[in-house]
Simulated assay, not measured.
Amino acid sequence: MTDVSAILLALERDLWRANREGDADFYRATLTDDALLVSRFGAAPKTVVVPMIAANRNPFVRTELSDQQVRFLGPTAALVTYRADYTARVDGVDVDLSVLATTVYVERDGQWLVTLHQQTPLGP
């Protein structure tokens, strides 16, 4: 595994940690200004995602990532794919969910940033 691959996988883990903890500042610093996040709820730009993370209305209480792969699209772009199994607290009830996730990173001024994150739900 290259050093960049390790950096990207660590960033991915940190994004899930930030989601669990409501750490909007980490999202603000790690997403490009034109980033787009796509999930079962639709597509949302950074200007919508960061306040949602800060509000932390459905906190994640558990996240596990597996089957992680890194593919380089060029010297300054990479794709990370994996499975995420997590538990979200929805209206006080813990709900177990699983997704296949893809994150596209771009390198700008020596920093790797998320420009696209997409999740495909697994199961009901």
Rank of each mutant, 00 (worst) to 15 (best):
D91V: 05
L37Q: 13
T47L: 05
A35D: 09
R108G: 00
Y105S: 07
A78W: 02
G92I: 12
D109M: 00
Y82P: 02
P45D: 12
V106S: 02
V61E: 12
Y105W: 05
Y105D: 09
A78V: 09
F60I: 14
Y27G: 07
A44Q: 14
Y27H: 11
Q118S: 14
D96S: 07
T76H: 06
R89A: 04
G42D: 10
H117P: 01
D3Q: 14
V61I: 13
K46P: 06
L100R: 09
V50R: 04
P45S: 12
L100F: 08
L97Q: 07
A54L: 04
A88Q: 10
T81K: 01
L36F: 00
V104Q: 08
G110T: 13
Y86S: 02
L65D: 03
D25G: 08
T115C: 08
D14L: 08
D25M: 05
D25I: 03
F60N: 15
G123Q: 13
M52W: 00
A84N: 10
T63P: 06
L113M: 13
P75C: 07
T32F: 01
V93G: 04
V38T: 12
L36N: 12
Y27M: 07
V90M: 02
A54H: 07
F60E: 12
F26Q: 12
Y27D: 07
P51V: 08
G22Y: 01
Q69C: 04
D23S: 01
F41T: 03
R13W: 12
D3H: 11
A88P: 06
A44P: 08
R57F: 03
E64L: 07
A44T: 15
W16G: 05
Q68M: 15
V104M: 10
A55I: 00
T30Q: 14
T63C: 10
A77Y: 03
D34I: 02
A77N: 04
S66D: 15
L31V: 06
L9N: 14
R62I: 01
Q111H: 06
T115N: 13
E64W: 02
F41V: 03
I53L: 02
R28D: 15
D96Q: 13
V80C: 06
F41Q: 10
D67C: 03
A88R: 08
W112T: 03
V38G: 02
V50S: 07
V80G: 05
L36R: 14
T30E: 09
P51H: 04
V114N: 11
L15C: 13
R71E: 13
F26P: 14
S39C: 04
V104A: 12
Y105R: 09
W112N: 10
P59D: 08
L15G: 03
T76E: 15
L116I: 10
V49N: 04
R28K: 10
Y86E: 05
T115G: 07
A43K: 11
